[in-house]
Write a protein that binds this DNA or RNA. Structure first.
Lengths: 215, 215
DNA sequence: TAGATTGTTAATCGATTAACAATC
DNA sequence: TAGATTGTTAATCGATTAACAATC
C-alpha cells in the first residue's frame, strides 16, 4: 500500500466536481487525435477559465510541462486515478416508479464505466418484473450484494426516501445519488449528492422571469 | 406596472437555488396542518441552518414576525411569486433518445407545475411517433410554439448539443436545462442549468474511494 | 412584562480570477 | 536563446455561520 506524497493538499470540493468535466474533454481531445493540450484549449473545451483549470490541476500534482502543455493520455490517467475510476463501481437503482424506470433504461451510466447491476423495490407487485432487461429484486435479496463498492441511486417517493436511505446505509453503502426531492440525513462517512429536476426548472423560471422584467 | 421597493437587493445565486427547497418544505408543512413555522423548524425540514435560512429570506423582504415565526401560506406565496411560478411555463424536450424517452415519461415535472408540452427531434424516423402519449414533432413545427415562456430540456447527444442550443436560442427560448454532457455556450440573457448524471456518479466515486483509504 | 424568534451584523471561510515569475 | 505556457501568488469576490440587538 502506497501513501500519498507528503505535499498532497486536500482537494477542494469545487475542484472535485470539475474533474469529471476535464476528463470528458480530455477523452474528446484524445479521440480527435490530440496528444498534448494547453490549459487554454482544455479550459475552452471544459467551459472554464484557463487559470482556474491550472489551479484545479495543481491540486493533483504537477503534470504539465511549461511552455508545452499537458500530455492528454497521462493527465487522463491521473484524473481517472484521482476519481477512483480504477475501482469497480456498481449502481443499484432503488425505487422502480416512473423515474426509476427511466433511469434503468438510461444508457448514460454505462458509457462512463458505471454498470447498473440491480433494480430494487419494496413493492411485492413489482419485485420479479423485468425492466430494461433486468429483474427487479427486493431488499432481502439486495442485501447479499450491497457493499461499499455500490452506489445507490434513490428514486423513491419523497415520503420513503429517509427510511430507504437508512436501509442502504445499514447495508454498508457509502455513496448515494438522491433523486427524491427531499434532503436525507446520513451519518459521517456517507456521501449524498442530490439531483432535483423540478428544482432546476424552478431556478430557470426565476431567471426567465427576471430576464423578462429587465427587458 | 409596479416597481420593486428601492431597498430590494439583488438575490444571490446560492439563495435562488435554495428557494425551491424552502417552497417544498413549506408545502409539506401546510399539508401537515402547520399555519406558522419558525426558521428553526423550516431549516430542519429543508436541510439548512436556521441562520442561513433567515438570511436567504431577508433578501426577499421581511415576511416573518419576531417571537412568532413565518406564516406558511404567506411565505409560500411570496417565494412562488419571487420564483416566477405564477407565470405559465411549458417544457419542450429536445432529443428523443434514451434519456429523452425517460424524461418524457417522468411525471415529476408536472407535479410542480411545469407541463411537458412538446417532444422534439430532428430524425425523420422518430418524428410522428407517439411517446408517453405525445406526438414527436420536428423543428419546423416546434418553431410555431417556441417563445420565452418555454423551457428547453436538452437531451441530445453531446455532438449536437451546441447546434441545437443555437437553434432554440434563435427561436426566442431563454431557459435551457442541459442534460447533454458537454458545456454549451449561449448569449447574454439566456440561462443554462446543467444536469450530468454520470458526473454525479464520478464525484461519488471520488468520495467513496477516499472514505475507503481513510478507514 | 418575559419569552421567543426574527433580521442583520461582522467574522470566517472557500472559490475565483488575473497576473507573473519560473521554467521547459 | 526566445517564445510559450505552466504553477503559484495575491487580490477579490461571494457564501456561510454564529451571535445578538431589535421587536413581536
Amino acid at each position: 500500500m502506497q501513501s500519498a506524497p507528503a505535499t498532497r493538499r486536500e482537494i477542494p470540493g469545487a475542484t472535485v466536481a470539475r474533474l469529471p468535466v476535464y476528463l470528458r474533454a480530455l477523452r474528446a481531445a484524445a479521440a480527435a487525435g490530440t496528444d498534448v493540450i494547453s490549459s487554454e484549449e482544455l479550459a475552452r473545451a471544459a467551459g472554464v477559465r484557463s487559470s482556474g483549470l491550472r489551479k484545479d490541476l495543481s491540486f493533483l500534482g504537477s503534470y504539465g510541462v511549461r511552455g508545452v502543455g499537458y500530455d492528454v493520455e497521462h493527465l487522463t490517467e491521473e484524473i481517472s486515478r484521482e476519481l477512483g475510476l480504477h475501482r469497480e463501481w456498481s449502481v443499484a437503482i432503488i425505487g422502480m416508479g416512473n423515474l426509476g424506470h427511466a433511469l434503468a433504461a438510461y444508457s448514460g451510466f454505462a458509457t462512463r464505466g458505471f454498470s447498473v447491476r440491480w433494480l430494487v423495490d419494496s413493492d411485492p407487485a413489482i419485485i420479479g418484473r423485468t425492466i430494461a432487461g433486468k429483474t427487479v429484486i427486493g431488499f432481502p435479496q439486495f442485501e447479499q450484494f450491497a457493499d461499499d463498492g455500490v452506489i445507490a441511486v434513490l428514486a423513491t417517493p419523497p415520503a420513503s426516501a429517509q427510511a430507504v436511505t437508512d436501509q442502504v446505509v445499514a447495508l454498508g453503502i457509502r455513496s448515494i445519488l438522491n433523486f427524491a426531492p427531499v434532503p436525507v440525513h446520513v451519518p459521517d462517512g456517507v456521501e449524498v449528492r442530490k439531483v432535483d429536476l423540478a428544482t432546476e426548472l424552478q431556478i430557470l423560471a426565476f431567471h426567465g422571469q427576471r430576464a423578462g422584467v429587465e427587458a
